[in-house]
Design a protein around this nucleic acid. Structure first.
Lengths: 228, 228
DNA sequence: GGAGATTATGGCAGTGGCTGACAATTGACA
DNA sequence: TGTCAATTGTCAGCCACTGCCATAATCTCC
């Protein structure tokens, strides 16, 4: 028999309060693995860190590591997982009458209001931020990152189609809107990671700026200066 | 034992004709490796095909395979490489005065006019198409595919910025436009791969449709039916 | 056409990611 | 306390990938 291990994503609750000893222990090992991995990745780089080193740092076997994470990449995406989940939740919470684009923009703004707090549960924010830079600069991780984002895109597009009562395969607008939106967000995220202000407030401002640039960018005439 | 396919690709290729024996031989092994890899991937799936099998099929050592391709993934992207190069060339060839979005749209249309011919040089179109489906459905390949696309995006954005005389780091529009454009194209490509009409003509029509949906998708009001 | 410099290739040993199988251990619960 | 199920460690093994060195093929120049 299999125990479901997706149960513990209850946000905002400190680890170790719920469930029996067995589950608490599992959560602790998992968090410890993430933390050790992030520290090692930041210290030595992703490729120069071996799974054995991560496992040794937490004093478990390599085999156990692979029981918690299906591969070495996955352990690097703790923060991303959080962001994606949070954003999706906020989109689902938008009022039904709201048009698609404003709904997405407000969802992203609201999501970033709470992400700060949540990520502290596993590792210090500084660590997450450095990890984000490593993801952007390590080809293998960047590739996985983009794939994960695309999976989120699809879920969001489905939610938008549902809200608007559209057949997602017949009307191109849900997927195209979300693709454009995600593209602008990706550019914003990249600039954020390369800059020096790693507050969530800075991220919100960048999102706004790049999303606002979407319509002017599609316009024919670029002669009017804008954007900065 | 030895697979000899020296005859076909020397016909219409500038690259197959020039150079000494050494270079021609190198090109032949490379093409043979691509072809053998595609056939094996299509027949058995990407993950169930080992590099040893590909090398054996062409009668070279595994070590030689890795001298031609830096990893197993790379050999799967022959067609994509072609498309990206072609598209980039067409963008660079657009007249200077043309606004960014029309330039991109016309570049993609022109690119697909010649891709058919070019890809036949290495393997039959059918094989490339099946490979494309495998890329879209194999997580490891999809991830690499998206990263490659993003690299192309960056190059195109730089070209757009250059054309418009803008500083790409100061004005968000070049990257945002290209991100939105690429997003719509990606959705179109996915639909193309899932459909049954694999002509480049079909791809051009899908591109048109999804790019046309970009502006309506960003608009506030979706109540007016459109797109299909 | 042959000597010598270049370059492609093969073989081999070794590392690291990842998996299946099985046995030992630990927590849950009657 | 004893039984049952979940968790873990150990071990053997596959596969992607790399460095190293010897060999064989091509190229260059006389």
């Amino acid at each position: 028999m299999k125990t479901e291990q997706e149960t513990e994503q209850t946000a905002g609750r400190p680890s170790g309060l719920c469930g029996g000893l067995r589950e608490r222990k599992k959560r602790r090992t998992r968090d410890a693995l993430v933390r050790a991995a992030l520290e090692l990745f930041v210290a030595k780089g992703y490729e120069r860190t071996t799974v054995d080193e991560i496992a040794d740092a937490v004093d478990v076997s390599q085999r156990t590591f692979f029981r918690y994470f299906s591969n070495k990449e996955e352990v690097a995406f703790a923060l991303q997982e959080l962001i994606e989940t949070r954003f999706l939740t906020e989109v689902r919470a938008r009022p039904a009458g709201e048009p698609p684009m404003p709904a997405l923009r407000r969802a992203v703004t609201k999501a970033w209001l709470t992400i700060d707090e949540e990520m502290k549960a596993v590792a210090p924010p500084q660590l997450h931020m450095r990890m984000y830079q490593i993801i952007e600069s390590t080809p293998a991780l960047l590739a996985v990152h983009l794939r994960r984002q695309q999976e989120t895109e699809e879920r969001i597009a489905q939610e938008i189609a549902r809200r608007e009562g559209l057949d997602i395969d017949a009307d191109p607008r849900p997927r195209v809107l979300v693709a454009a939106f995600a593209g602008a967000m990706r550019v914003a995220g990249k600039v954020w990671g390369e800059g020096d202000d790693w507050t969530s407030d800075a991220m919100r401002k960048l999102s706004d700026r790049y999303l606002a640039a979407l319509e002017p960018a599609l316009a024919q005439n670029w002669r009017t200066p804008s954007g900065n």
